[in-house]
Design a protein around this nucleic acid. Sequence first.
DNA 1: GTCCATGCAAACGATTTGCAGAGTT
DNA 2: AACTCTGCAAATCGTTTGCATGGAC
Lengths: 140, 140
Amino acid sequence: MIDKQIRKLRTLGFKITPQRRAVLDFLDGNTSHPTANDIYEGLKKNDPEISLATVYNTVELLAANGLLLELPISKNKLNYDPDTSQHDHAYCTDCGKIIDIFPQKKNGDRSDRIENFQIRSVRKIYYGKCGNCQNKEESL
Amino acid sequence: MIDKQIRKLRTLGFKITPQRRAVLDFLDGNTSHPTANDIYEGLKKNDPEISLATVYNTVELLAANGLLLELPISKNKLNYDPDTSQHDHAYCTDCGKIIDIFPQKKNGDRSDRIENFQIRSVRKIYYGKCGNCQNKEESL
DNA sequence: GTCCATGCAAACGATTTGCAGAGTT
DNA sequence: AACTCTGCAAATCGTTTGCATGGAC
């Protein structure tokens, strides 16, 4: 399913290296919202030669070209989401898990206007505690 | 106006040092969404002895006790907002300015429910271009 | 063959830590 | 006086950079 993304990159004049392919493959269908380092650790298993800098370069390239979303959700790290469709996120402040939230009913959010500001995208994050961590607390 | 916050800190058993007072004073009514370093630079003018570590300690203390909001909006830095009332933010991806947005009409956002997740707070960020930067672009 | 991309290691910026001395209560 | 907080410097973490080599086109 990464064919479309590869075509887009090629169209834009970027070279399709095995590393870029590997990052795209890793991210394809991945809902874990990994950081660059998470991706690096995942890829090292198959390709111990891959470099962290390359992963950083690649995610930056993908994000800059709309193939990947940057999620500045928690302190001083960037998580990535390969699902670029409109959705929200819930962040568990206990365990750090990020959960995709697809709002059932379309509310007015996406059509908001702000005077003197050109909106490119909207990001909404719910901070709280996931089911797992709520249970953990009860059992103390 | 920082009296209420000082009382709260005292109640919680924290000492009211000149440095903590200075941070509270600096933040009081401040809508610039400063980082810890911004606060440090601002305070150094009056108190060249103040340490960056102390500022970090203080903002962490304030945030942990609900007197300050952490805003993970842009890459790898944390901005703070002393206005803890419910509102959104618009972030200009050109100049980095963060603007407070107080929605006119209360929509359903704040009463959203997520199955198996306990929402503590919601944060909504509009990414785009502020008026200034739009004008700059036109004049090129 | 040309240029862009990779891998490495060093550099960097924001934040955290350890600890001795100072200040609040 | 007790115990927390401060300031300093070093450590750490995530990310970026410079540069020589390698690979996609």
